[in-house]
Design a binder for these strands. Sequence first.
DNA 1: AACCCGCCCAACT
DNA 2: AGTTGGGCGGGTT
Length: 180
Amino acid sequence: MSLSKDDTSLKSYFVFKTGLGWCGVVSSKKGILRILMGYPSRERILRKIVAEFGRSIAKTPAKGNIADKIKRYFSGGKVSFKCVLDWSFLSPFQKKVFKASMKIPYGAVESYGSLAKKAGCPRGSRAVGGALARNPFPLVVPCHRVIRKDGSLGGFSAGGGLELKKKLLKLEGQVRNSNK
DNA sequence: AACCCGCCCAACT
DNA sequence: AGTTGGGCGGGTT
């Protein structure tokens, strides 16, 4: 996934604060390159962005409605994230998995295995887990809706960790108080 | 060519 | 409830 550091293709970012931590969006000319969320401070998220995209990345005013959508979603709105993504750097397998996962509707969940089947890779549950573990577009590619077959949560590697996954599912009405 | 995994399933205790 | 052991497929080094 390594992006060349001194790539001249222009990238830009903006960050913003939400009820569930600091979030950020990095874009290229083609679309959104990366969504970050769940960071505890402005410094932390900036450091992360610089670490991944280099110091030369440009800051841009929070244009577009993606920030508003995320905020609305975090406060309980049933938001559907339709936005242009730049996934030119993803592997074919990742594209298949992300595409399949975007079909999971708000408020629904699906298991890694079942998603693997829908992505055309019937025994690829672990591979699906691996792909989702590096999902650059959390929320837009709703990897938080993918859980284990037995109902336990599985993992979540975006900022905020498993706790955030639990919160998101709760927002969507999916986590009973089982505390599993 | 080895590792690592956000898994799954059956078969146990 | 938890553990084990085999199998799994993609990604990374």
